[in-house]
Design a protein around this nucleic acid. Sequence first.
RNA 1: GGUCUCGUGGCCGAGCGGCUAGGCAGUGGUCUGCAACACCAUCUACAACGGUUCGAAUCCGUUCGAGACCUCCA
Length: 488
Amino acid sequence: MNKNLQIYNSHSGKKESFESINKGFVGLYVCGPTVYNYVHLGNCRTFISFDLVYRYLQHLGYKVRYVRNITDVGHLESDADTGEDKIAKKARLEEVEPMEIVQQYTINFHETMKRFNNLSPNIEPTATGHILEQIDLIQKIITNGFAYEAEGSVYFDVNKYNKSHAYGSLSGRKIEDLMNNTRDLDGQQEKRNPLDFALWKKASKEHLMKWPSPWSIGFPGWHLECSAMSTKYLGESFDIHGGGMDLKFPHHECEIAQGTSANCKDPVNYWMHANMLTLNGKKMSKSADNSILPEELFTGKNKHFSKSYNPMVIRFFMMQAHYRSTLDFTEDAINAAEKGYNRLFDGLELLQKVKTSDKSSESVEILISAFYAAMNDDFNAPILVANLFNAVKFINHINDGKASISSQDKIQLDKAMKDFIFNVLGLKQDTEIKSSKLDSLMDIIVDLRKQAREDKNWATSDKIRDGLQKAGIQIKDNKDGKTSWSSH
RNA sequence: GGUCUCGUGGCCGAGCGGCUAGGCAGUGGUCUGCAACACCAUCUACAACGGUUCGAAUCCGUUCGAGACCUCCA
């Protein structure tokens, strides 16, 4: 097994050889969604990207503990630590309990992840379930002198922290630049410095979600939960922290500051950031009204695309781009991916039927090692996909008698392709329900058409063929005179 | 305004000093009653202008263009 894995660490800005803290084990933390709305396709890309990471680490034989949180409190409308809690706001608008909002969108999130064939994390902690841990963490930070209380709220002292550590090292910012560019100063009188961020906020009377603490009845700051939960389940320092590029600043920057100030050590060894998905050239975002929901894509009911798409086609589409590149989602691009996806699976299917020879005309070992080389190079899925297509071409050549494969190599190639397609890329074949009713119905239709063709009644045979095509069933007249059909 | 990233053939998208990326579309074939499907083969390229180098899409500089972050966002 080749474990020469290189990971691009956003903190150092370089590709680094991956070494886990505990041999054979990996701690992976990914920032999950704030469950106040449906996850859109852009959100999904991040989770699909890290699902690939999780899957490949497992494929390499690591025992991975994958933690992905659910943010169900503390995420305010504005990061100036003012404004309404996102979940509470939605609850007020819909006239339900905040926890009803949380429940509704958490369920939707899980269903969506399942459609995309994302594996579940090992632990999926919620912010509200870890209030005590968050309070403990705040206390530690206060004890170490990096936070102060003001009017029942607790703020992180960025200036003080920056004297001994580099605040901004992840996002490549200098504190002076940040100071000069802080615009929104409203409601920040309690802070010593506008860059300070809330660890604990005192709740107003009307505030729905609040808990007692040594400082006030209130709620935790958004950045805190990830620090508290990652520490609890993965330790004070762990291997990989992932999230969307847009969380780099301030969220992840604050996490580093919190973890470092509480435990006197850098909490994360490798930072990984997934890039954005754009829709017709612009960043997908709910607030900019430029987003699409997975469900709208699966059903085809949306204003951007004229047909529906299989979740696996969308996943495959995303695998054709590197996770650190922006990816533009357009109708042409997804249609191209759909055809490629079918080609890949047709090739895999053909491999099962292909005849073996004494010798292989091509080195299957080299073919397979290219799969690993691609993934070991910072999870380069597009290269992996290209290599899989090379394998498909080889398979087709074998089928045409232009190449050959030994029975042993066939078994190896089959195993490797299935491993990488199903277990690593996380694709799965259409579970199109071919009911026995449809099967027998098609037997009759195919038979009728066969009769018509024998009678040279082309009008009837073509009518059947074209009609079926419209219904999404592709008739195939094979060389041997037999007719088969498929519905992808 | 500040910080940063990126500009690759008709489209999507890898590569990032010398070696075919890949997919889709196009074109030419094979197959076919005609097709479709499928398969085979194949044409288009590195934003512009300078520089470094034996050699640059790949490094440096300038210009133009796009996007991200600095404010909620995956």
